[in-house]
Amino acid sequence: MAEAGSEPRTEQAAAEVAASAANAPFDLAALQARFPDVAYEQPGADGWPVLRVPLKDWRELIAHLRDAEGFNILLDVAAVDWLQRAEGRFDLLAHLRRLPTTAQIRCMTIVDGAQSAPSLTPLFESADWGEREVYDLMGIRFDGHPDLRRILLPDDWEGFPLRRDYPVEGPRVLDPASKYAH
């Protein structure tokens, strides 16, 4: 059976790749020259190096990673609610990879309650649904998103369920005028 692109790696080779990916997934000096406010963190237990990005640089930095460094897949957009945190309420994350190598990078930024984040949709199509879901469940708005509507919940839903101050049981009794009421 022909397997065109299969590349079985030995154990050592995999370890080598992982090590090199951890050390230099990208040209950090060039990146920090262009974005001086970006902080770099060495990979933690899970092997993901982290870039802490100010919100203003969010889209430009990820554009830089895509265009200059060849990160070609935006795996996921996610958000974490820290409710009372002084620096700002939400962590917004983007997991990027450079396929088919093992280079990977997590970008994090802080979005405060009333702020909106620049949308990544001009860079990656996967940001379309990813950001819609973050908006739907966390309530972070994205500037420049072409179609920022709720994606999982009904259109007339109130509140953002994944926020920490949203009760797990939700409203239970929905507005009787809603077609979703029962």
């Binding site: 919940l153 369920p161 949203y166 009760p167 797990v168 049981e169 939700g170 409203p171 239970r172 029962h182």
Partner: peptide
């Protein structure tokens, strides 16, 4: 799933 998204029994509907 005792949570906001799930109807707590289809006999409500």
């Amino acid at each position: 799933f005792n949570n906001y998204a799930v109807v707590q029994g289809v006999d409500n509907v």
